[in-house]
Write a protein that binds this DNA or RNA. Structure first.
Lengths: 228, 228
DNA sequence: ACAAAAGTGTTTTGTTTACACCCATGA
DNA sequence: TCATGGGTGTAAACAAAACACTTTTGT
């Protein structure tokens, strides 16, 4: 009864912060997987796969993310559905793309091998399909969303110092931030709670450790807030 | 070779401003179509239809929008992809939903009949599928986006007064705005240009007519700006 | 004591809000 | 000339940015 339909895939842009190999400064990286068939055989591509009948879109994103990188995201949100007719040669594929943030510690657990690697978003090669456009758009969303939400915390562990949180913002926004004003800005959002512990072993005044207030959402997604 | 896949549909939430039948104040309305088959037979639903092989997502949204209402939108943007496994009984359907703004004048051209009607978003009945959630989310996007972009102009014709533009904002945000501050706020965005003409026939000082600067986009969609 | 980053205080600048007041028209 | 909304001016309140300065640690 149905005409032939485009096939449906789910992909995910996964962001983590890692040190720049040259400068050592924190920068934004993504994991990619190698194409093991045509088209774009051998090229790097975003992790993803076809959508199966019994899983929701977000579940599919989580699953393919876990399968290819072993990671579980701190933050996962739908990015956009890409459906140009010519985005894949031969086949017609509509990709529903999610974007995710993972902690740098867990990101380090992902072993680079022949078929999976991390790439710096500062210096991306040509990816398969329209994945360069997708990553550009995901980066744009990451940067705009960082300015009005609390997603930066998804890059960090349970406890963190304000300097670490500021480093996240600086890495994503690619500009230095005044420590004093940053502190007040974050305190004004009331999104973090101070612990009574401090980091030790630095050769200067020890910084207080904070943790995020888990009773608050990382981002306001309106009526979709409690959805899967 | 492929497993069975969810089917793909495109739907659109179309907003227009129309006078409230009681108060006469401008309010937000959407057109809906009647379900002519199960499931949800007889219920109102968002205009939409299956995605065909040779059209992009936005084209499909425009097409179904035109087919069901005869309208052409001033503004069209992707809203979200809805894909819960249980959002349609029996069938598994993933809906990529767009939202659109149309001018009130063109909206009036749509004849209500047995199978198409306009509903006030202030007082929606129970719609088919998860369409109430979809409309809620579209309304949320409309309201948040109106505060930081120039989409309000898509509700109006070529020429308009600042009072008309303010009326759009007030209808969407559902709160009164100071005319003096509103004027300065709009002028600061530089998104409109003054004409040398004024409205006549009012029993007070005639208001200047403005038009929007067509060299600017209505909204910043980042790297997706020039896409179809 | 000194270097270095944590953390506080203060001044300046800019933006938003509230509201008083003048202007131009129809009746 | 009066009522009505169009349009301008201005001061208060608030928020953001810039930067001097004090605190607390390791060496």
């Amino acid at each position: 009864m149905n005409e032939q339909q485009p096939s449906l895939a789910v992909s995910t842009v996964i962001f983590a912060l890692r040190p720049d190999p040259v400068t050592g400064a924190a920068t934004v990286w993504i994991p990619v997987v190698r194409r093991i068939r045509e088209p774009y055989l051998g090229k790097w591509a975003l992790p993803g796969g076809p959508l199966t009948m019994n899983e929701s879109l977000a579940s599919a994103a989580s699953r393919t993310l876990e399968e290819t990188t072993g990671l579980a995201p701190q933050f996962l949100e739908q990015l956009y559905a890409f459906g140009s007719v010519d985005r894949s040669p031969e086949l017609r594929v509509v990709s529903i793309v999610y974007w995710a943030l993972v902690q740098s510690v867990t990101a380090d657990a992902v072993r680079d091998d022949e078929n999976v690697t991390w790439l710096s978003t500062d210096d991306l090669p040509e990816l398969a399909f329209d994945h360069n456009l997708i990553v550009d758009y995901a980066l744009w969303r990451l940067r705009t969303k960082m300015e009005y939400s609390r997603i930066a915390q998804a890059f960090l562990g349970e406890d963190f110092t304000l300097a670490q949180l500021r480093e996240v913002h600086e890495a994503v926004l690619q500009k230095p931030l005044d420590p004093a004003n940053f502190r007040r800005m974050i305190e004004a959002t009331k999104s973090i709670v101070a612990t009574d512990r401090h980091v030790t072993g630095t050769r200067h005044r020890p910084a207080r450790l904070y943790r995020y207030d888990t009773s608050l959402e990382l981002a306001d997604s309106g009526p979709l807030a409690t959805h899967v």
